[in-house]
Lab assay of single mutants.
Amino acid sequence: DATRCSICQKTGEVLHEVSNGSVVHRLCSDSCFSKFRANK
């Protein structure tokens, strides 16, 4: 199964994995990581 970025939905390489309870968010770049943090 292809890994997909939680923010931009791009498949491919994942730079960050953030687990939040039972959910793991995968983020492909620092910019997506920043957006993820801002959205929480």
Results as ranks from 00 to 15, higher is better:
residue 29 S to W: 01
residue 23 V to L: 05
residue 28 C to K: 01
residue 35 K to M: 13
residue 8 C to H: 02
residue 1 D to Y: 10
residue 32 C to P: 01
residue 36 F to E: 13
residue 22 S to F: 05
residue 19 S to R: 10
residue 30 D to A: 04
residue 9 Q to M: 09
residue 39 N to T: 14
residue 28 C to H: 01
residue 5 C to A: 00
residue 39 N to C: 05
residue 39 N to P: 13
residue 12 G to C: 14
residue 9 Q to V: 01
residue 35 K to Q: 14
residue 29 S to K: 02
residue 30 D to I: 01
residue 32 C to A: 03
residue 21 G to V: 02
residue 28 C to E: 02
residue 21 G to R: 04
residue 15 L to Q: 14
residue 28 C to N: 01
residue 31 S to Y: 11
residue 27 L to A: 04
residue 21 G to P: 04
residue 34 S to K: 15
residue 18 V to F: 10
residue 22 S to K: 12
residue 33 F to T: 10
residue 36 F to H: 11
residue 35 K to T: 13
residue 31 S to F: 08
residue 23 V to D: 14
residue 7 I to L: 08
residue 4 R to Y: 14
residue 38 A to P: 04
residue 11 T to K: 04
residue 30 D to M: 05
residue 5 C to E: 00
residue 4 R to S: 04
residue 36 F to G: 07
residue 3 T to Y: 11
residue 21 G to I: 00
residue 7 I to S: 05
residue 8 C to V: 00
residue 40 K to V: 14
residue 16 H to A: 04
residue 29 S to G: 05
residue 18 V to I: 10
residue 27 L to E: 04
residue 19 S to T: 12
residue 8 C to Y: 01
residue 3 T to W: 10
residue 20 N to Q: 12
residue 4 R to A: 07
residue 17 E to W: 00
residue 11 T to P: 03
residue 21 G to A: 06
residue 7 I to V: 11
residue 15 L to A: 08
residue 26 R to A: 12
residue 24 V to A: 11
residue 36 F to C: 03
residue 18 V to Q: 06
residue 39 N to D: 06
residue 11 T to C: 03
residue 25 H to A: 09
residue 25 H to Q: 11
residue 32 C to T: 02
residue 20 N to S: 10
residue 25 H to M: 09
residue 14 V to Q: 08
residue 30 D to W: 00
residue 23 V to Y: 08
residue 37 R to V: 06
residue 34 S to E: 15
residue 20 N to W: 03
residue 10 K to D: 03
residue 12 G to P: 02
residue 34 S to Y: 00
residue 24 V to K: 13
residue 23 V to P: 04
residue 10 K to G: 10
residue 3 T to S: 11
residue 32 C to V: 01
residue 32 C to H: 02
residue 10 K to N: 02
residue 14 V to N: 10
residue 27 L to W: 07
residue 37 R to K: 15
residue 29 S to T: 01
residue 19 S to H: 06
residue 4 R to F: 15
residue 14 V to E: 03
residue 9 Q to F: 10
residue 10 K to F: 02
residue 8 C to Q: 00
residue 21 G to H: 06
residue 20 N to P: 02
residue 26 R to G: 09
residue 34 S to P: 09
residue 6 S to E: 09
residue 11 T to N: 09
residue 17 E to P: 01
residue 6 S to T: 14
residue 26 R to S: 08
residue 12 G to F: 04
residue 26 R to H: 10
residue 20 N to L: 08
residue 3 T to K: 15
residue 12 G to K: 09
residue 31 S to G: 13
residue 11 T to M: 08
residue 31 S to P: 11
residue 3 T to L: 10
residue 39 N to A: 12
residue 34 S to D: 15
residue 8 C to I: 00
residue 21 G to Q: 13
residue 39 N to W: 08
residue 28 C to L: 00
residue 31 S to H: 08
residue 33 F to K: 13
residue 9 Q to P: 02
residue 40 K to F: 09
residue 24 V to S: 07
residue 6 S to I: 12
residue 22 S to V: 02
residue 3 T to N: 13
residue 25 H to K: 12
residue 16 H to G: 05
residue 23 V to G: 12
residue 7 I to R: 06
residue 31 S to D: 14
residue 9 Q to L: 06
residue 3 T to G: 14
residue 25 H to G: 08
residue 16 H to V: 03
residue 34 S to A: 15
residue 29 S to I: 00
residue 40 K to W: 09
residue 6 S to Y: 13
residue 12 G to W: 02
residue 31 S to A: 10
residue 16 H to I: 01
residue 12 G to E: 10
residue 40 K to N: 15
residue 32 C to N: 01
residue 22 S to H: 11
residue 16 H to F: 07
residue 29 S to P: 03
residue 21 G to S: 07
residue 3 T to C: 01
residue 23 V to M: 14
residue 12 G to H: 07
residue 32 C to E: 06
residue 14 V to P: 11
residue 26 R to E: 05
residue 1 D to T: 15
residue 35 K to F: 13
residue 27 L to P: 03
residue 24 V to R: 09
residue 39 N to H: 07
residue 21 G to F: 04
residue 17 E to M: 04
residue 38 A to I: 07
residue 17 E to G: 02
residue 22 S to P: 11
residue 13 E to V: 05
residue 24 V to D: 09
residue 6 S to N: 07
residue 1 D to S: 11
residue 3 T to V: 04
residue 14 V to R: 04
residue 2 A to S: 15
residue 32 C to K: 01
residue 17 E to V: 03
residue 5 C to Q: 00
residue 13 E to K: 11
residue 35 K to E: 15
residue 38 A to S: 07
residue 35 K to V: 12
residue 19 S to M: 09
residue 16 H to W: 00
